[in-house]
Design a protein around this nucleic acid. Sequence first.
DNA 1: TTCACTGCAAATGCTTTGCAGCGCC
DNA 2: GGCGCTGCAAAGCATTTGCAGTGAA
Lengths: 152, 152
Amino acid sequence: MPIDAKAGSPPPSQAGGKEQRVTKQRRAVSAALDELDDFVSTQELYRILQNQGVSVSLATAYRILQSLADEGLVDVLRNGDGEAVYRRCAVTGHHHHLLCRNCGKAVEVEAPAVETWAARTAADHGFTEVAHTVEIFGLCPDCTALKAAGKL
Amino acid sequence: MPIDAKAGSPPPSQAGGKEQRVTKQRRAVSAALDELDDFVSTQELYRILQNQGVSVSLATAYRILQSLADEGLVDVLRNGDGEAVYRRCAVTGHHHHLLCRNCGKAVEVEAPAVETWAARTAADHGFTEVAHTVEIFGLCPDCTALKAAGKL
DNA sequence: TTCACTGCAAATGCTTTGCAGCGCC
DNA sequence: GGCGCTGCAAAGCATTTGCAGTGAA
């Protein structure tokens, strides 16, 4: 069962490669990714662009993201639902999330300890080009109160 | 946007739970999983059962695997193609995975430090009923070598 | 006998693809 | 002006679900 290796950034050499035209849509997708330092699924990015009034068809969003991934310009991962999620590479401010499973509220948290643990664990097993995902799910204070009151 | 939290092994308490009938299909799926110590997708397991002459419908295979996963009897992951893959869970203990994004190899790793960090972070923010997911992706030693040799 | 489990087939939802027109270079 | 990029709609797939028949307890 072959597992694709989108992340294996092929050398950006333009030897016999094909040019990449800079279009409005491509710029829009790229800009949207710049503003997010989080992973987004194609569907989410599509909605974000729509909310911004930018018109990019869903099919094009898929194509552009795949293209960016092939060029190694973005990181690709799979979220818990099996959707492909993308994030601009080389982000300096890396962090994770604490999510409320009832209301969806998200709290950004930093986890230097986790970062080093992940890096070391991977290194211990000889893994390279490491990336990781960490998400914590729970009930936020508000929803915890709601539940305690029997309203959930 | 409801977010489910598979990783938070819910207490297997059978308080008001529903019974699980032991059927031929369920036994077949379970037996097949026992013989495999690798992750298999539902589709693959379905084909394996067919080759063994065991007749289990695809829909049922999906249902049984989900059921086993809900009970915490099997590990669930997503492979690089976004398919759900299952494997018999040896230990009830909670652990995470280090996955090769090229060949799909999975290494189980324990992360007590991460567990405590997650619990404390959540508590600090007043979150309750906490669960979390942690996955590390990278290239395993073999695939790293392949890539270095330019074969990837 | 009862009610969960099965199988089948239709339905869903994400992702990909064919094709004709548009617009960047 | 050429050729890659877009949009639209249809196709493709894995996964889920409705429903009636079957079988475990």
